[in-house]
Amino acid sequence: MHSFGYRLNALLTFAVTILALMCAMGSLSDNLNTPSPSAEIQIMNINWFQKQPQGNDEVSLTMNISADLQSLFTWNTKQVFIFVAAEYETPKNSLNQVSLWDAIIPAKEHAKFWIHTSNKYRFVDQGNNLRGKKFNLTLHWHVMPKTGKMFADKLVMTGYSLPEEYR
């Protein structure tokens, strides 16, 4: 009964239980944090706007993104993944989400930033519906914890539109 193996088993079980409990508590403590992030995106320039040979519209634009996401960070936060997506409706699709730019924020110190960038991923429509299209830019964030539950939320910014003509 009091063999080495038995004691090792008891010790391991106890250690793992404590560890699990601490992980669960760490993850639960994230709920105490009520984040209040803010962000602003401006479209500075439409670099070019054309119809691909396959018939899909493609646009390249330059954005000015400024955000303060410091309140998302807690002691259980490993990193925050953020991305900016263009969201719009077309006659064929009830929802189009196209990711334009993303970044990983590794620490709270980097969570208040300002960046001037063109789109990192191609902004291509399924079809040619982009001329004069009104769309939303949404800043999504995905909080990846050190352990436990992942959180995601977004800020929708409305009122953007594309030019009527290809250029």
Binding site: F81, F83, P91, K92, N93, S94, L95, N96, Q97, V98, S99, D102, Y121, Q126
Partner: peptide, 9 residues
Amino acid sequence: RVIEVHERR
């Protein structure tokens, strides 16, 4: 990770 979604009407 999902980076693009086009949902048919």
